[in-house]
Design a protein around this nucleic acid. Structure first.
Length: 741
RNA sequence: GGGCAUUUAGCUCAGCUGGUUAGAGCGCUACAUUCACAUUGUAGAGGUCGCUGGUUCGAGUCCAGCAAUGCCCACCA
């Protein structure tokens, strides 16, 4: 027998075990088929890894995700399914670019514009590569059984092809359009930011009541009011019954008299302030919508750097923050300031990446239209016929309502519906450099008779105009990172090419990710995939919670409460770290993690180690392979264990991984070790040979199966111990042993 | 302003479709230790299952209301 040291030492073995797994090739289902691990026509099981951003390193949330997915994948593999788990990383456009630029500013006092597009991108790519290498190392350290031969990156060529193809299809269907719309503009990073990337910050700001002709209007942003010439109130407001919609009145305003037009609109809250407001359509979303409804003029007041334009006269060129008090002073002098409410609080929109205050601007951007009707091009969807009029919104709702996709926990389905019902067109263009450049070209010739007066969308890179051979210019914007990650299940399997992988593994089995990106990512994947293929991207969505510190706070650098998964794996082993993230974690619920917990599970690894050690010590004269040595009493004990094994499988099948792990933990320690082994001691040392052999077989059988059942949760220690059991050959890897229940 | 979730032992949480004396892990207390394991074992203390009312033969479990906490959504100028 192999000599086992007294205590389990994960540092000595984990790295080598991972290498052995990798070398075996069994992470790749094709190899499994070739070597007879699973049948060629076995049922497929596929998960695509939510690609970590190449912005740095993995955190505990990633580790939780990896643990859960690896459990599902390893169990499926042992059950003989054709099992595939695809690794990959995400270029994370804005996040990565802003991180690199921030470093550039800090180190060299230069912005990306100082370097130029090409040089800057080179820098970003270098950073992304380094970050990628770190991440791959970390993924392996956690024991993730990913098929590295299929690794993908959202910005590599196959994924770029998918991105451009998707863009062109949607453009041709009229689902992607370019329009002048109000967007969230980040004056610092000089780019648009999607609604979902906004972080709202509560702020106390003076609220000014200004005299506007016969009305009093309230505003917290007087500096935007220079051009205001529409005054809006609710059509039912009795106080302003005397004024008619469209009526013009002369009012004294900031720089002299203006002609104001009365507008009646139902979006006005009669109980807020005075129930009257003037509007600034260029710099406010609500105002923009009112202006759209009534076809009003819009005028830009603030430039893209946050400075006032010439309309502000003596304030032109001054930044809005500085201009505000100066303007208030002027208003006061002119007698237009009635009062100030200093207790007023409102919410300010900030960019969640970078933290600058966002200023709405009207800009030409690319959008995906989610409410436009189009004939559905696929015939393979339950409940929607080919050619039937649908919208992207409808498709997204349909997939979940018809239970083609099941979301766990269920309460997120409601949240998902609510989000979709309020969904507006998705702005997909970004004015940054790192990302998929929009595959649209503009012909510089001014031949308006040819087709090239319109934007040219091309999947292939083109250098001259295909219609007139004239010079062209590619749209300088890049796509929102979620556009390409929305294609992830498809693009990782080879779409738009008709690959065998796509045929076999799509739709994927489970999508496992954090509930915080259900809108960013899960919804977008459903949108993209159902539109492009008529298939759902996955059948089950498993949403895990956030990993927090032991007080329930978010882990963050500034709080200094970060527990790093790699440190923990180094200190207590990857297995212990994994188990600490699996037990006590229900889908959708946050998990409080402390080092103590991990230490506790490390003790369990040691227990298993010593259970095996004991069994080996007492089975030296036992010859495995002889059937039916079990006596009546031992058969009963074995039967009880079989029930535990079955229950474990049932729990895992219904994705109650925490309960399954807990059950095994409890059985191994408090039933097998505390009772069965303790009771075995006299039998193993006793004179009765038959009883001894029966016990030896019982212990070997149960321990072998415990290791199998625990393997998905704690793959390293179980793999290590399994080959040491009586009758096991070294080459026989536990990771592809048959699931025992 | 809407919505969702949580509230069970000192701490972290199980308890699925209502059914015998409410469970686990950690922590705590006492004892044990040439035994596979001190990263251990044995024994033990500790809970009016947030509050109020209801349905039921029976409720931690279902219903209503309330409270606290957390989260999400929303264009209060």
């Amino acid at each position: 027998m192999n000599e086992l040291s007294k205590a389990y030492n994960p540092q000595e073995t984990e790295e080598n075990i991972y290498k052995t797994w990798e070398k075996s090739g069994f992470f790749n289902p094709d190899v499994c088929i070739k070597k007879g691990i699973c049948k060629k026509n076995a049922k497929p099981f596929c998960i695509v890894l939510p690609p970590p951003n190449v912005t740095g390193t993995l955190h505990m949330g990633h580790a939780a995700m990896l643990a859960i997915e690896d459990v599902l994948v390893r169990k499926a593999r042992m059950q003989g399914l054709k099992t595939l788990w695809i690794p990959g990383t995400d270029h994370a456009a804005i996040a990565t670019e802003s991180k690199v630029e921030a470093e550039l500013v800090k180190k060299e006092k230069k912005t990306r514009h100082d370097l130029g597009r090409e040089n800057f991108l080179e820098l970003v790519q270098k950073f992304a590569q380094e970050s990628h290498d770190t991440i791959v190392h970390q993924l392996k350290s956690m024991g993730s059984s990913l098929d590295w031969s299929r690794e993908a990156y959202t910005l590599d060529e196959p994924r770029s092809l998918a991105t451009r193809t998707a863009f062109r299809r949607m453009y041709e269907e009229g689902l992607i359009y370019r329009g002048d719309r109000i967007v969230n503009w980040d004056p610092r990073m000089q780019t648009t930011v999607s609604d979902d990337e906004i972080e709202w910050k509560e702020e106390q700001a003076p609220f000014y009541y200004l005299k506007y002709g016969p009305f009093t209007i309230g505003t917290s942003r007087p500096e935007t009011k220079f051009g205001d010439k529409y005054v809006v109130m609710h059509p039912n407001d009795k106080r302003y019954k005397a004024y008619k919609h469209g009526q013009r009145i002369e009012v004294k305003w900031i720089d002299g008299p203006v002609t104001a037009t009365i507008i009646k609109d139902k979006s006005i809250d009669q109980s807020f302030g005075t129930g009257v407001m003037t509007i600034t359509p260029w710099h406010d979303k609500t105002d923009f919508e009112i202006a759209q409804r009534h076809n009003l003029e819009k005028e830009q007041i603030i430039d893209l750097k946050g400075k006032l334009l010439p309309i502000a006269n003596e304030f032109a060129g001054i930044h809005i923050v500085k201009a505000r008090p100066l303007l208030v002073e002027k208003l006061q002098k002119k007698g237009l300031l009635e009062s100030v409410d200093k207790t007023y609080t409102h919410r300010v929109a900030m960019n969640s990446r970078g933290g600058a205050t966002l200023e709405p601007q009207i800009m030409r951007q690319w959008f995906i239209n989610v409410t436009k009707e189009f004939p559905f091009p696929h015939g393979n969807v339950k409940g929607i016929e080919k050619g039937q009029q649908v919208t992207l919104k409808k498709l997204m709702l349909h997939a979940v309502k018809t239970k083609q996709i099941e979301i766990l926990p269920k309460r997120f389905e409601k949240i998902y519906y609510h989000w979709i019902n309020n969904l507006q067109d998705w702005c997909i263009s970004r004015q940054i450099w790192f990302g998929h450049q929009i595959p649209v070209y503009y012909c510089k010739q001014e031949n308006s008779k040819l087709k090239c007066k319109d934007p040219i969308v091309s999947i292939q890179q083109i250098t001259i105009c295909p219609y007139c051979d004239g010079p062209i210019e590619q749209d300088s914007d890049t796509l929102d990172t979620w556009f390409s990650s929305g294609l992830w299940t498809l693009s990782t399997l080879g779409w738009p090419k008709k690959t065998g992988d796509l045929e076999t593994y799509h739709p994927t089995s489970v999508l496992e990710t954090g509930y915080d990106i259900i809108f960013f990512w899960v919804a977008r994947m459903i949108l993209m995939t159902t539109y492009l293929t008529g298939e759902v991207p996955f059948k089950t969505v498993y949403l895990h919670g956030m990993v927090r510190d032991d007080q329930g706070r978010k882990m963050s650098k500034s709080l200094g409460n970060i527990i790093n998964p790699l440190d923990m794996a180094q200190k207590y082993g990857a297995d212990a770290t994994r188990l600490s993230l699996l037990i006590g974690a229900a889908p959708g619920n946050d998990l409080k993690l402390s080092e103590d917990r991990i230490r506790g599970y490390r003790n369990f690894m040691n227990k298993l180690w010593n259970i095996t050690r004991f069994t080996l010590l007492h089975t030296q004269d036992y010859k495995p392979g002889v059937k039916e040595l079990l006596n009546k009493e031992d058969k009963k004990i074995f039967q009880e264990f079989r029930n535990v094994a079955k229950k474990t499988t049932t729990l895992m099948d219904s994705l109650r991984l925490s309960q399954a792990a807990e059950l095994l933990y409890h059985y191994a320690w408090h039933t097998f070790a505390d009772n069965i082994i303790e009771e075995s001691k006299p039998l193993l040392q006793g004179e009765d040979k038959k009883k001894r052999h029966s016990r030896q077989q019982l212990l070997t059988l149960i321990l072998g199966d415990i290791l199998k059942l625990l393997h998905p949760f704690i793959p390293f220690v179980t793999e290590d111990l399994y080959t040491k059991l009586p009758g096991k050959k070294k080459a026989q890897l536990l990771m592809v042993e048959k699931w025992p229940a």
